[in-house]
Design a protein around this nucleic acid. Structure first.
Lengths: 241, 241
DNA sequence: GGATTCGATAAGTCTATACATATCTCGCGC
DNA sequence: GCGCGAGATATGTATAGACTTATCGAATCC
């Protein structure tokens, strides 16, 4: 947009593929092409837009990833009958989340000890009942008030450096995000009434509704960590499509 | 890798770009290339993998989208210092959600009437206080028991066909997913203690923690719909990375 | 010393071409 | 009529080459 320079006539130079994607998206949204319709093939669109087929392919690929188009070899490209749209949210570093909200961040380790996993966890992670894990409970604070509290199990077998980290210096959340890339993650959230323990650690009344995130990450050596993250009441998680 | 023509057996022939992406991902996860490191440039990797630069570009693009790499012109490609990972979840058709859980789906329109938007909503949607919206309250049931209940405002100005749909036949949720592609969506969730109304419509005790989704979608003509979706206690939303 | 300019570099994009592959369609033989 | 194999066709993927653009870093000028 802000692209004065020598001032080429039209201006901002959007990549061609994106321009094509936008135009196709418009035709779908404005019902020029309706749900289930077959749209012209790549070669025809390439001619129409004065682009190479590879460029049109990129554009349509993009819309297929968005869920707006269904594409099959030989069968052609159709407007998805039920556009299954996806939303994405980012897994944040809690410190940054707090600081972006304009609060001063601090975190406090409530307990840390070596322990074998509870039965349910051992099953879920596929670990032996006598595996040696680190159990860590931490409260994240904003302006001195509890913001989120995490109950986390760490598996040094999958990530040896874990055994040497001082989690009072850097929270496990941040250390992991910065140092332990993972191959696979499971994420789930639900609402829960605050238990006595939740209430005490978050400094709220028992029974208040809190948002709970469960997250487990794996690398090639096995599960790295599994965490239950309880958010302060009023916490809103946002995503975009 | 498995790419001799004379040797079919291996089978599914993974695309080369994906193979390269997998190998780069492995080098990152196994710390061959550490957070913040600059990795070889596209031309070098192309030589190493015996591929064209465009193919390597595609592979690295992929990893950048995943959040594992930071790429900048001239500056080169680096392993992201804090791999900001994204998780995606799909916006489902509630009927399919219920049926996948093996329950019989039904829905029931609790109320439907034309009304101007409440002040807060008008502001949020950027509509005039006297806009004519449809206010619709629906309960989705699985095996005869309330599963989710939605409190929805629909804007026929952005989607004229809305005025003619019979929402007892097909739920607004499903009609919209199938018929009203959107350009932009806002999604947010939080936990809430069930109000008296929530409790009555979901057939639960007041105060129970419920997961609440707020979703608003727009097309080029303005906001299409804004919905508050209250899920039955115990509902778990899952996502993947 | 500090700001400015300019050239080199690496990613970003597009093109033209080629071949691979899934799958639809049609015609053949029974 | 029906199954089956042979094409035709649209997308999937890879290729080399060209040009564009952001930006780093060094040489230059005040």
């Amino acid at each position: 947009m802000t692209d004065r320079a020598t001032d080429r006539p039209p201006g901002p130079t959007t990549p061609k593929a994106q321009g094509i994607a936008a135009e196709v998206r418009r035709r779908i949204v404005e019902r020029e092409w309706r749900q289930g319709d077959r749209i012209p093939d790549e070669a025809d669109l390439a001619t129409e837009f004065g682009a190479a087929r590879a460029t049109v392919n990129k554009a349509l690929q993009l819309l297929a990833d968005e869920g707006l188009l269904d594409r099959r070899r030989r069968a052609g490209t159709r407007v998805a009958p039920a556009p299954i749209r996806k939303a994405t949210f980012t897994i944040p570093i809690i410190r940054e989340q707090v600081e972006q909200a304009g609060m001063a961040y601090a975190h406090r380790v409530v307990s840390q000890r070596l322990a074998p996993p509870p039965a349910a966890l051992a099953v879920r992670l596929g670990l032996a009942r006598d595996a040696r894990l680190i159990h860590l409970v931490t409260v994240h604070e904003g302006d001195g008030r509890p913001f989120q509290y995490e109950d986390r199990w760490l598996n040094p077998a999958a990530e040896p450096e874990l055994a040497t980290v001082d989690f009072r210096q850097m929270s496990a959340n941040e250390w992991l995000v910065r140092n332990a890339p993972y191959l696979r993650a499971d994420i789930a959230f639900h609402a829960a009434n605050a238990s006595a323990r939740d209430a005490r650690l978050l400094d709220i009344a028992p029974g208040r509704a809190i948002l709970v995130l469960q997250r487990t990450t794996w690398n090639e050596a096995g599960p790295i960590t599994s965490v239950r993250l309880a958010c302060h009441p009023g916490f809103v998680m946002t995503a975009e499509a």
